[in-house]
Structures are given as C-alpha cells and as structure tokens.
C-alpha cells in the first residue's frame, strides 16, 4: 500500500519535471559542467586515472549546485498553485508523499549522472580503465546525490516560494558538500581527539572520498543512507508542521 502510494506520487512528480522543460536545461548544464571540470580543472589528459577520479572528485560540488534546482519546486509549487491542501487531503500518508517527491528528484539526478556514461565509454575505448571501480563510483555518486536531494527537499519543504527554496537549499548543500570539517579540525584543534573523530564522521566530502577511493567503507555508505533517512523524516515533520 505504502509502496503503491509512493510510486503514484513518484510518477506524478517525475512527469511534472519533463512538462516544465527545465529538466532539459539542467541535464545539459550538469553534463557540460562535469565535462569542463574534468577536462580543465584537473590534469586529465596527462594523468588519466583508471577510476576516472578527475571526473568523480568534482561531483559533490556540481551536485550541490544542480540538486537545489531540482528540488526547489517540489513543495513550493504546491503552495503556488494552492494544491498542497488537496494533496494532503488525499488518502495517502505524508511519508509516501515526501518519499515519492524525493524519489522523483533522485531519479532525475540519476538520469543526469547517466548522461556522463558516454564520456566513460569514449575514454574507456581509448585507454584501459577499471570499469568495476568506475561502476561502483557511479553507484556511490548516485547515493551522494540522493543524500543531497533528500536534504534539499527537506529544506525546500519549509519554504513557500521557489526562489527561497532554491537559495536556502543551495546554501545548505554547498555548506554540506564543500565544508571540510576534518580539515578545519586538523588545523585548529589537532589535539582534541573527540573533535577530530566527530569532524571526520560528519565530513561529507571526506565520506564521499572514502567511497570513491576504491576502498568503500561500510560506515561511509551508512552515512549517506542515514542522511537520506533523517532528511526524509525531517521532510515529513515539515509537512506535518505546515499542515498543522
């Protein structure tokens, strides 16, 4: 029942993305940005890594900029079109609605990620690559993008218009993806073991790097899954709060 509700909600949101046409622009911008960063922000031609590290290392940054644009209208549009009350009055749980919306945004993020598969294919034909490692990295990047989608969706659930939703979730995503807590802790409090451990545990970039390094730590996978779970929960609370 719950799954059917989620799927219904997902289908509706997913179709809406394509009707708004903005998704095509985002797809293009993402693929072009990823290629530019890979080719020009690193020594890709002279130092082609077997795991396409030059491509994956920029993904959190790019995702932090693109994902808010995907999630900004998830809830704000409902307010704008006055459809939130109607939606919440349906015989469907808030959890199913929040999950469906999140999954729709995550699916679009997945389609974006797949857009770079052509690059993988072309490079793979020209130089030998570790394809298993790259496939795993795609999976981990998808997971990372999912966590940003969930956080971004939760933030946007608190906002009433699209621009506010975009800006606030952009700020949150950039802080999450770009702030290197462990580097700060190493710089300012290298002797405080607890702070060091805490900073490492919550460092989004560090956790992502742990995943794509080839030695994917289970704790890092759990980190992203937990972030998704917690953000979804906060999302549901936000909806309940608005409803009340």
């Amino acid at each position: 029942m719950f799954l059917r509700d989620v799927l219904t909600c997902w289908g509706k949101e997913f179709r809406l993305y394509f009707q708004s046409r903005i998704v095509y622009l985002l797809l293009f911008v993402y693929a072009a940005m990823a290629a530019v960063f890979t080719l020009y922000a690193s020594d890709f031609y002279n130092n082609t890594a077997v795991n396409l590290y030059q491509f994956f290392r920029f993904q959190p940054g790019i995702a932090a900029m693109i994902v808010p644009a995907l999630t900004m209208r998830l809830w704000a549009d409902e307010y704008r079109h006055n459809t939130l009350e109607v939606l919440l009055a349906q015989p469907i749980s808030y959890a199913a609605i929040a999950t469906g919306k999140f999954l729709a945004a995550w699916s679009i993020a997945g389609i974006m990620l797949v857009s770079s598969a052509g690059f993988w294919l072309i490079v793979g034909v020209m130089v030998p690559l570790d394809n298993g490692w790259i496939a795993a990295n795609y999976l981990f990047t998808f997971l990372m993008a999912g966590s940003l989608c969930a956080v971004s969706a939760a933030v946007s659930a608190f906002c009433y218009n699209v621009l506010a939703a975009f800006l606030s979730s952009l700020a949150v995503c950039i802080v999450l993806a770009a702030a290197r807590f462990s580097s700060w802790a190493e710089k300012f409090m290298p002797d405080n073991l607890l702070i060091m451990q805490l900073s490492k545990a919550f460092d989004f970039g560090q956790q992502y790097n742990d995943l794509i390094s080839g030695q994917a730590r289970f704790a890092a996978v759990a980190y992203f899954v937990l972030v998704i779970g917690a953000a979804l929960w906060v999302n549901i609370i936000a909806v309940e709060y608005k409803r009340s």
Binding site: G132, R217, Y223
Partner: peptide
C-alpha cells in the same frame, strides 16, 4: 548513529579490479 558507526564499523568493500 553516524558517529558510532564511524568508530565501530571498520570494514570496507574493495571495489578495485
């Protein structure tokens, strides 16, 4: 949970060929 997992879970998955 994240903190505890990072301390306790040391296992990893080697995805390299």
């Amino acid at each position: 949970l994240i903190f505890c997992l990072n301390l306790v879970v040391g296992g990893y998955w080697d995805v390299t060929a």
